Each structure stands twice: as C-alpha cells, then as structure tokens.
Simulated scan of single mutants.
Amino acid sequence: MSVSPEKSKPSWFWPLSAIAVPLVALITKTKRLGTLPTEGAYVLAPNHMSEFDPLIVAVAVWRMGRAPRFMAKASLFKVPFVGWVLRVLNMIPVQRESTSVGARQTLAAAEDLASTGRGVIVYPEGTLTRDPDLWPMRGKTGAVRLALEAGVPLIPAAHWGAQKIMPRYGKFSLWPLRKKTVFVVGEPLDLSAYVGRERDTRALAEATNLLMNAITALLETLRDEKAPAERWDPTKHNQKETGNYES
C-alpha cells in the first residue's frame, strides 16, 4: 500500500503508533473497507458512539496510509501530557464557548489544511450520539464548514463494533480479546452546490444533513438494517451535549 508523505516522514506518530497499533490489535480485530486519498488534504467525518472508537478510527486511518489528526476540545490541550501529545501531533483545538473564536479557528485550520496537505478527522455530531440505538444523531456544521473553507474533499465514514469494547458511558470490556469491528470509508461528497456559501447557515445545514445521510447509509450497510426515519435531535429530546471531540 502506498503511503502519504505525512506518514512516511519521521514524526511523533511513529513511536506512538508502535504502541497504539499492537495494543488496539490485541483488543479488536478491525476490518477496513474503502480507501483514503494517498496525498492531499481532506476532512474525514465518522460516526461517534463510544469513548473507545477514536482509537479504532486512528489506527484504521494509520493503516490506510495516512496520519490520524483530530479536531479536539481546546480544554484537552491544557491537560498535562495529553496537551503535549496533542500539540506535537498537530491536532486542532476547538473552542465551544465562543462562536467568533470557533469561526476564526475553523478558518485557521482550513488554511493550514490547504497549505500542508494533511488530513483531519472531525466528528460531525460533536459528541457521542444520544440515539438510543447508536445511530448517528443530528450533525453540527463544523466538518462541512472546514471542508468548504479549505476547498478539500469531505469524506464520510462509519464504524461498528466499538460498543462491544466500551459501551457509551459504560465500562471497558477487555475479554474476550480481538472483538470484531468494522471501519468503512465512503466516497467524497459532492459539495459543489455549496462552494462559496461557507457563511450561509442554511447552506451549511443542508450540506451537514447530506453528510449525516451518507454516514448513516454506510452504517446501515455495516449493521445490515435501516436507521430510523427521523434522526435523533438532542435539542428536541432535551439532552445535554458533552464530549471530547468537536465539530
């Protein structure tokens, strides 16, 4: 498999992957479907249903030939050691509290993506899904906005099986080892109708719904069942949104 310069060039990803890859492989046997671009920037948008799934996604992306960089809560960058790891891996901090700050950070991240050709992983739901059956819930506009601002492909992805390792807000389950999980990467979305409309809230909402439909369709193939006709909306169900990974 060919790999991108961001993976083949020496970096902190090398020693960390030497630890993470065999550890995750011991816990889960992940089947990978689809491909990522060998070169160039992109935004990868997977579903989010378990505290453990970032590790599954990160290792899958690494094995697909790209370096796994996430958008992460800015507060995590202040945590000792964790913050250092995030910084040396060039993860992207996101502020939740201020819309103006968040917009500036998105623009800065987009400029960095376009200039460096790196990929970034963004959870469009912003946190763990609140859907009782773990289907993707209503998405936030961050992933779409970032892809449009940077002018890079927006790629939907889905995974299934992480809930057997760590149920949402549940306890880690190590035994039996090598639980099966699946990770699939879809085709880049056609966002041509939204180019130049990065500040149009209606356009961003429409494009985000398109993205969530694509992620849900991928997950339906993994689960071999249909998702509910109405997507879970935490604002309608009076749910408080929390989590480490933001849109």
Score class of each variant (00 low, 15 high):
Ser4Leu: 02
Pro5Gln: 11
Glu6Arg: 07
Glu6Asp: 15
Leu16Gly: 13
Ser17Thr: 11
Ser17Leu: 08
Val21Lys: 09
Pro22Glu: 05
Val24Tyr: 09
Val24Pro: 00
Thr30Leu: 01
Thr30Ser: 06
Lys31Gln: 13
Leu36Thr: 04
Pro37Lys: 04
Pro37Ala: 01
Gly40Ile: 02
Ala41Gly: 05
Ala45Tyr: 05
Pro46Leu: 10
Met49Asp: 01
Met49Ile: 08
Glu51Phe: 11
Pro54Asp: 12
Leu55Ala: 14
Val57Met: 07
Ala58Leu: 02
Ala58Gly: 15
Val59Asn: 04
Ala60Val: 07
Val61Leu: 07
Arg63Gly: 12
Met64Thr: 08
Pro68Ser: 08
Arg69Val: 10
Ala72Val: 13
Pro80Lys: 06
Val82Asp: 01
Val82Tyr: 00
Leu89Ser: 08
Leu89Ala: 07
Met91Cys: 08
Ile92Asn: 02
Pro93Ser: 02
Gln95Ser: 15
Ser98Ile: 01
Val101Met: 12
Val101Asn: 07
Gly102Thr: 08
Ala103Glu: 10
Glu111Met: 05
Asp112Trp: 14
Asp112Met: 13
Thr116Gln: 08
Ile121Gln: 02
Glu125Cys: 07
Gly126Pro: 04
Thr127Met: 05
Leu128Gly: 00
Arg130Ala: 04
Asp131Asn: 09
Pro132Met: 03
Leu134Ile: 02
Trp135Met: 12
Arg138Lys: 15
Gly139Trp: 11
Gly142Asp: 03
Gly142Gln: 08
Ala143Gly: 06
Leu146Arg: 01
Leu146Ser: 01
Leu148Thr: 10
Glu149Tyr: 02
Gly151Trp: 07
Gly151Val: 11
Leu154Trp: 03
Ile155His: 04
Ala158Ile: 03
His159Phe: 03
His159Thr: 02
Trp160Phe: 10
Ala162Met: 05
Lys164Gln: 13
Ile165His: 04
Ile165Asn: 03
Pro167Glu: 13
Pro167Tyr: 09
Tyr169Ile: 01
Tyr169Cys: 00
Lys171Leu: 11
Lys171Trp: 10
Leu174Thr: 02
Lys180Asp: 14
Lys180Glu: 15
Thr181Ser: 15
Val182Ile: 14
Phe183Gln: 13
Phe183Ser: 10
Phe183Met: 13
Val185Asp: 06
Ser192Tyr: 10
Ala193Gly: 06
Val195His: 14
Val195Glu: 15
Gly196Leu: 12
Glu198Val: 15
Asp200Ser: 06
Thr201Asp: 12
Arg202Val: 13
Ala203Asn: 08
Leu204Gln: 09
Ala205Trp: 08
Ala205Leu: 10
Glu206Cys: 04
Glu206Ile: 09
Asn209Trp: 00
Leu210Ala: 08
Ala214Pro: 05
Ala217Ser: 14
Ala217Asp: 13
Leu218Lys: 05
Leu219Arg: 07
Thr221Arg: 13
Thr221Val: 10
Ala227Arg: 12
Arg231Ala: 14
Trp232Pro: 01
Thr235Tyr: 09
Thr235His: 06
Lys236Cys: 07
Lys236Glu: 15
His237Trp: 09
Asn238Met: 04
Lys240Ala: 11
Gly243Ala: 02
Asn244Phe: 15
Tyr245Ala: 01
Glu246Tyr: 11
Ser247Met: 12
Ser247Ala: 14
